[in-house]
Design a protein around this nucleic acid. Structure first.
Length: 961
DNA sequence: GGTCAATCACTTTTT
DNA sequence: GTGATTGACC
């Protein structure tokens, strides 16, 4: 890729080593080449040693590559550079803490210390596990925060919040927040008001209401607010009003959040203490303590500062990393290299504004760091900007396509804020430009992609650049298929498998959903409790038919061979040995099996988990689809399938962008967490708890509902994702869709052609490990005990096949809106609010509720800790209404459909409520009501018996057929 | 152009 | 469980 002689801009970057630089390095512009040469030039000076230069990267592989390329072009050899600070941010922070970090926690008011034995917890799964454990204890110790437990759907959200706060440099101390962090939480009212005003400006010269007012036309719908919330008309003004009152900005911004802040601070601080006592640090905390150390300990800071600092992929830095980089700079010789158009890691707390607002942030952060001491040298710094414009990867046509992509609206209503001046135009160096850009479509999208690939291979129309610079026909290995989701990649791979199509997946896999993991889990369950749910899987794998399995389970006596194997496993001492024996039994070898073994062993080592805990760990892995990296062994000449994120930094002659369907790319902005941090407003709580009424209750936060509509809808990252994908291509780009093509394609514009897929089966020699790790044939159905997973559609389908052959076709349901309005009414009525029924449905609710004697109790969708089958499960929002009196519990569920099929399904669903609640209210009788509204009937339905329920669970574990 | 109701399609990405 | 979109009606 890189020419041996630098071009002009590259030379400027290489030679201009003094002062602060911001380098805009677009894709394929020889950034690594220039950065490594620059490094070489600096360290080759007699007065500079490698230890004087920090080169920070984001991945270990990037660090390794940098180091190797430096060795090629400097006076230093690999051995001399082996310990040089060419590292990821994380490993450098680790190094720093090892050297100077012993007392770092004391600066936050923690007595614990960081020692040589403090481990870095890399595995997110394990950290989530630890946090869960911590939070359980925290709850018991801190009853004063009960209100927030109630409003919290999942403790994991708090861990996410802590990570996000840490990434912005907001840390807790023993009695408050570190270095003015609280002002971030409070937010900046002026900044908020600017956004509010922008959203609240009437349009069409004042004839049309503001976007904000329009957005709020469904304010309160499907929501329950506390009584202090304004009504919709109070908020929006009457008919004909064009905008919200200015006072609203203040009203939504000013909220008493002292309790919320105290809660978050306590959890955050106590979790830091917990981690230190358990002798581990997460990635976030590594950076947190490194920052605190550098801020507070002048001697450590001076020892840690470098003469030169270079940061690669600067668009991927978080706010905290930017600040860390400044603290590590002993001079103004600071060089940030990045490309805002390739910032696609915001979910990893990357903040693109580090690049787009570089100068302003540099000034602001330096001022903050220097407010009470002289910490960093950036004083009135005027950074030098360098733009690398020459692209050595792609043809002019591909570059042109990418530049249209970065400015194309990603969805209707998406206003593109890209200033053409911000896009550094690239020029191509390609020897010829025969680029094909096309769109294909067919409803069998997988087949369409595969046959398109076959049409490309060997086809001179898609010639690529050969080693000699001359065109040659493409091979399988020249082609990469990109997707947004791993799921799609896995589906495509399964389709490819049918045709023996040479295709390999590269990236993380959902390890716990693979066959080896499922079987290991089954055997662990058998060892632990002789569980039916383990035997069903094992026997199914052994080839027994469904009814045979049923008989074995009923009698509890099993075939000789598996029974003997089980006895053998019982004699083994370690979980690792069990895993190895199980994988051997089924001949699982290769990457996935290795990774599974390693993961199981490390969970065990890291947590000294018992077998039961390991089982729960794996079950959670299945539920959440946690991924583990597997280096896929691609054949010599195979198509690569990967997510766009995984493809970053790579290049391929031909790129196929798959799954470009309407609504899939981009996905809708959405997702919600109970407690959100949003710049500039700060910490907001989406649900609020109130004890004002006779019964505790959780409400939606009306302020939050207004605020979030003032924040810009960001599709920017979706555009950047497309940009990254397109710029991987050297010569040709194909977009593929299965349904209606995404509007992105119209914008580019790319014509989409309907094609007729015809995949030729190849019948290749099977590589030894070809079946691993993607031969997942079992449905992704539920395995765990949680009512939600039991209620998964696959359960119902599996049961339907046996119990309701010939059931009538699925009727149209009436959707959720209707049901939730009735639901809202029911809640209000049950709470004693002054509401009157306005239609027959609501009148029936009144009848139903009036028919229930005793006190009323509304159970909102909050979490209840329950033990089922000895396992702790979390139940969220399981019923619309739970009515509790001294001796009985009535479960009320509103449904909007009364067909036979629906009734049968509800019966199963209800049985889950029944059995779970039965355990919860151990001494109470459980009654159930099922309320149909669409034809006005109300029925009492008997839940399934325990055995029937068990059979359902088993059915999902044994794939039918 | 505002309002309301109904309908539809969707719930990633991973250092 | 939500946002976008559409159509009827004012």
């Amino acid at each position: 890729m890189s020419e041996p002689t630098p071009n002009e801009a590259q030379r400027e970057l290489i030679e201009s080593t003094a002062g602060t630089h911001l380098v805009d390095a677009g894709p394929g512009t020889g950034k690594t080449f220039a950065v490594t040469r620059r490094y070489g030039r600096i360290v080759d000076r007699p007065d500079v040693e490698p230890d004087d230069v920090l080169l920070a990267t984001f991945t270990r592989s990037a660090a390794t590559e940098m180091r190797e390329r430096i060795v090629d072009h400097s006076a230093y050899g690999l051995r001399e550079l082996a310990d040089a600070p060419i590292r990821t941010f994380h490993s450098h922070c680790h190094e720093l803490l090892q050297e100077h970090g012993y007392a770092a926690p004391t600066h936050l008011g923690l007595d614990e210390r960081i020692t040589g034995s403090t481990r870095i917890l890399e595995d997110e799964l394990i950290e989530a596990e630890r946090f869960r454990e911590f939070f359980g204890g925290f709850r018991d110790d801190h009853p004063e925060h009960a209100a927030f437990y109630r409003a919290l759907a999942e403790p994991g959200e708090l861990l996410d919040l802590i990570g996000e706060l840490a990434s912005k440099g907001i840390f807790p101390t023993a009695d408050g927040w570190y270095r003015g962090g609280e002002s971030y939480l409070d937010g900046d009212f002026e900044a908020f008001r600017a956004r509010f005003d922008a959203a609240n400006r009437p349009r069409n010269d004042g004839r049309k209401q503001s976007a904000l007012r329009e957005d709020l036309s469904d304010f309160g719908r499907h929501k329950t607010y506390r009584s202090d919330a304004p009504s919709k008309s109070e908020l929006r003004g009457g008919r004909g009003t064009k905008r919200l009152d200015d006072d609203v900005a203040r009203a939504v911004f000013d909220e008493d959040r002292d309790g919320l802040k105290a809660f978050v601070r306590d959890v955050y601080f106590e979790y830091l203490r917990f981690a230190l006592r358990r002798n581990y640090l997460s990635f976030s905390f590594l950076q947190l303590f490194a920052f605190v150390l550098l801020c507070e300990d002048e001697r450590a800071r001076e020892a840690a500062q470098f003469e030169y600092v270079m940061v690669d992929e600067f668009q991927d830095t978080s706010e905290l990393q930017f600040k860390l980089a400044l603290l590590l700079s002993g001079t103004e010789n600071f060089c940030a290299v990045g490309d805002w158009k390739q910032s696609i890691y915001s979910f990893q707390y990357a903040d693109v504004r580090n690049v787009t607002e570089f100068e302003a942030r540099l000034e602001q952060f330096a001022a903050e760091l220097n407010d009470d001491a002289d910490r960093v040298p950036f004083d009135a710094t005027d950074p030098i900007r360098i733009e690398l414009r020459e692209n050595y990867r792609s043809t002019a046509s591909v570059i042109d396509l990418s530049e249209r992509a970065i400015a194309a609206p990603a969805a209707s209503g998406d206003t593109v804020a890209v200033d053409p001046d911000d896009v550094v135009g690239l020029s191509s160096n390609a020897p010829f430009d025969n680029t094909v850009v096309e769109g294909i479509r067919h409803e069998d999208e997988h087949e369409a992609v595969l046959s398109k690939v076959q049409a490309i291979v060997g086809n001179d129309d898609y010639a690529v650049e050969g080693a000699d610079g001359e065109p040659r026909p493409p091979e399988y290995g020249d082609i990469a298929v990109f997707t947004r989701t791993r799921d799609y990649g896995r589906e495509l791979l399964a389709a490819a498998d049918e045709y023996d199509f040479p295709m390999a997946y590269d990236g993380g896999i959902e390890l716990f959903r693979t066959d080896p993991a499922k079987l290991l889990l089954a055997w662990l369950r058998i060892l632990e409790t002789d569980a039916d749910r383990g035997w069903a899987v094992v026997l199914e794998r052994a080839g027994y038919a469904f009814d045979e399995i049923g008989r074995f389970l009923e009698t509890g006596s099993y075939p000789d061979d598996p029974a003997a194997f089980r006895d053998g496993l019982h004699d083994l001492e370690s979980v690792g040995a069990v895993a190895r024996r199980v994988l051997d039994r089924y001949g699982f070898a290769g990457d996935a099996a290795d990774v599974l073994l390693h993961t199981v062993q490390s969970v065990h080592d890291a947590t000294t988990a018992t077998r039961g805990e390991l089982i729960r760990f794996m079950e959670r892995g299945v539920e959440t689809g946690s991924t583990v990296d597997v280096a896929a062994s691609a054949g010599d000449d195979a198509v690569t399938v990967q997510t766009i994120h995984a493809a970053k930094g790579l290049e391929y002659p031909i790129v196929v962008m798959a799954n470009m369907n309407a609504g899939r790319f981009p996905p809708r902005a959405g997702g919600s967490s109970v407690i959100e941090y949003r710049d500039p407003v700060g910490l907001r709580q989406q649900k609020v708890y109130s004890a004002e009424r006779a019964h505790p209750h959780v409400y939606d936060n009306w302020r939050h509902d207004v605020i979030r509509r003032c924040l810009p809808q960001a599709y920017d990252e979706e555009r950047r994702l497309l940009y990254v994908a397109v710029t991987r291509a050297e010569s040709h780009v194909v977009f593929a869709a299965g349904e209606d093509p995404n509007t992105f394609l119209e914008e580019l514009p790319v014509a989409v052609e309907e094609i007729e897929p015809a995949v030729e089966s190849l019948d290749r020699e099977e590589p030894a490990d070809a079946e691993l790790p993607f031969s997942v044939t079992a449905p992704d159905g539920p395995i765990g005990h949680s009512p939600h997973s039991l209620m998964d559609e696959t359960v119902f389908e599996a049961a339907d096949e046996r119990s309701e052959a010939g059931a009538e076709a699925a009727p149209e349901t009436r959707g959720m809106d209707f049901g939730s309005r009735v639901h809202d009414f029911a809640e209000a009525y049950a709470l004693g609010d002054d509401v009157t029924p306005s239609n027959d449905h609501e009148r029936r609710v009144v009848d139903l509720l009036d028919g229930l004697s005793g006190e009323r109790y509304v159970e909102e969708p909050v979490t209840l800790p329950l033990e089922v089958d000895g396992r702790r499960v979390t139940v969220s929002g399981i019923a619309d209404l739970v009515h509790v009196t001294d001796d009985r519990v009535a479960v009320v569920d509103y449904k909007t459909d009364s067909t036979r099929r629906a009734r049968a399904e509800y019966r199963k669903q209800l049985s889950v409520y029944y059995h779970v609640l039965d355990e919860w209210f151990a001494e109470k009788a459980v009654e159930t009501s099922l309320f149909y509204t669409s034809d006005g009937t109300r029925e009492r339905v008997e839940p399934l018996a325990v055995e029937e329920l068990r059979a359902l669970v088993r059915a999902t574990e044994s794939p039918s057929g």
